[in-house]
């Protein structure tokens, strides 16, 4: 039984360049998603006549509606970022179905996403309230300043740990179940008089872990990716508090209305 939650294994590329498995899987996902999107959005028409374009429009509409629902109108500028994180996290979690170590079991990956979202959230707070207003928000009421700063730090920490903890917990339970089933099947081999060392095939490991995998890999992966972007949206919305609408979205609106 080999459980490793401290980090992924390292791959040596071209003799000497050390790359972590998460980076390699991440780039494979990026390239695959890029070519998939290129294929989906090939020769778009105003009235779609291919299934391909209908699927692409459905995906974009899903994300835009989600943003409209949760952040209010005028925040669609964030929908590409959120869609990127969602797809990356989703596929990164689901690669564990192929037997590869899931990308989100690496705390470096989830911490990176959490820090990115935190920068976005803080940018929005400062943009909406001004830098003075941001500091004033941290220091009001004055007694609670340390707690406010602490809760500010807790945002990315909890976002990173939530995703990592869910996937790591699932991975540990699945690994332990695999090991237990292997031991149980060799015990059964011993019991009925076979030499367990010559029968490597542990028949109990077939099928039974798949039931757990449906929960820990499929359900947990999808829910955690969804929750991650939902929380990002909620934090950004709370940060803006509708003090000032987004600058560049207004510009886009102006261009659109002038065009018509």
């Amino acid at each position: 039984m080999d459980i490793n939650v401290r980090g992924p294994s390292y791959i040596e590329l071209f003799g000497g360049i050390k790359l972590s498995a998460s980076v390699v899987i991440g780039w494979i996902i990026i390239v695959a998603a890029f070519f998939f999107c290129r294929w989906l959005t090939k020769d778009l028409k105003k009235v779609p006549d291919t299934k391909r374009q209908a699927i692409a429009e459905m995906l974009v509409n899903f994300m835009n509606n989600l943003v409209d629902e949760n952040m209010g109108a005028g925040m669609r500028v964030y929908s590409p970022y959120l869609a990127t994180i969602f797809v990356f996290a989703l596929i990164g979690a689901l690669v564990s179905l192929l037997g590869i170590r899931s990308m989100t079991v690496d705390i470096n990956v989830t911490a990176t996403w959490a820090v990115m979202s935190f920068v976005l959230i803080t940018y929005n707070k400062i943009d909406a309230n001004g830098f003075k207003g941001y500091l004033k928000g941290l220091a009001s009421p004055a007694i609670l300043t340390p707690f406010n700063i602490l809760s500010e730090i807790a945002t990315p920490v909890s976002m990173a740990l939530r995703m990592f903890g869910n996937m790591a917990g699932g991975m540990i339970i699945t690994t332990m179940l695999y090991a237990a089933l292997g031991l149980a099947s060799s015990a059964i081999y011993n019991l009925i008089g076979f030499n367990a060392d010559t029968y490597y095939f542990s028949f109990l490991q077939v099928g039974i872990p798949a039931v757990l995998s449906i929960y820990f890999d499929l359900f947990s992966g999808v829910i955690q990716s969804y929750v991650f972007i939902m929380l990002t949206m909620a934090y950004i919305k709370n940060g803006r508090e509708c003090k000032k609408p987004l600058y560049y979205y207004n510009m886009i609106l102006e261009v659109q209305t002038n065009g018509k």
Binding site: V5, S158, L161, R162, F164, G165, N166, A168, G169, I172, I223, Q224, V227, M230, L231, A234
Partner: peptide, 18 residues
């Protein structure tokens, strides 16, 4: 969403255990 947020404290515990 609420469940995932409520889970945070449990995840902290799991993290300490890990």
């Amino acid at each position: 969403i609420g469940c995932a947020v409520a889970e945070t404290t449990g995840i902290y515990g799991l993290f300490v255990a890990l």
